[in-house]
């Protein structure tokens, strides 16, 4: 198996190599208004980047992947289209993207080990596992007006009663696409492609302006 696919740990040692998140340039260029900074009152929408997570695309049959995932990660594939499974401590998730495609998000330093173990479990099954960690980033959105910011941005129905916790979809966001999901009551997650991240960031600042949008800095910088 291992010689039929090039399994490759392309993650560098973050202790010696400077890593830049997809939004690093945007923070520098467009700024990061701290929550409450813009208007002096509480921000009704807050965003922040969760950088350097491990993003793996899984392709294959649901049954074999589900089995391998339960074995290796302790969580199974979500049973329904457009849904999401999150592990107990909220650090690992798997989301339905299409009938034969799922997105696995884990702490960044677990990525290669996970791929290796999954491949070992999957043996000769016809699957594909692709590391796309550096190709996209995760933006968290919270606050009482979060869904209004989304209503200004996406055609998908984001009413909190309709877009319930555990749902996740690929849809349009302004003039680009986004993976939008709701892992818990308080947060939305937007997974955006790296090259579009700056556009999405600027759009979010603009759409959130009327709600006094703020940006939180990630303190676990490069730690994972």
């Amino acid at each position: 198996m291992s010689n039929t696919v090039h399994v490759y740990d392309a993650r560098a040692d973050h202790a010696t190599v400077t890593a830049e998140s997809p939004l690093a340039y945007s923070f520098q260029r467009s700024g990061m208004p701290a929550p409450g900074e813009a208007s002096g009152e509480e921000s009704r929408a807050v965003i922040g980047e969760r950088a350097f997570l491990g993003h793996l695309i899984l392709r294959g049959g649901a049954i074999v992947l589900d089995e391998a995932l339960r074995e290796v990660l302790g969580i199974g594939l979500p049973g329904r289209p457009n849904s999401l499974t999150v592990d107990a401590d909220g650090q690992r998730s798997v989301q339905w993207l299409s009938p034969d495609e799922w997105l696995l998000i884990v702490p960044g330093d677990e990525t290669f080990g996970l791929e290796t173990r999954l491949r070992a479990h999957l043996g000769g099954s016809h699957v594909a596992i692709v590391d796309v960690s550096a190709g996209q980033t995760l933006i968290e959105l919270s606050g009482e007006a979060a869904h209004e910011v989304l209503m200004k941005s996406t055609v998908y129905d984001v009413d909190p009663h309709a877009f319930t916790v555990g749902k996740g979809v690929t849809t349009l966001f302004a003039k680009t696409s986004v993976i939008l999901r709701r892992p818990d009551e308080s947060r939305w997650e937007l997974i955006v492609r790296r090259s579009f991240a700056d556009y999405v960031y600027r759009w979010l600042l603009d759409a959130g302006a009327e709600y006094g949008i703020g940006v939180v800095r990630e303190d676990r910088h490069e730690s994972q």
Partner: peptide, 18 residues
Amino acid sequence: GRHCRELFDPERYTPMQA
């Protein structure tokens, strides 16, 4: 709507844009 001026269309950047 807001699809104008600097938000008219997405601008895609490579990691070396800065």
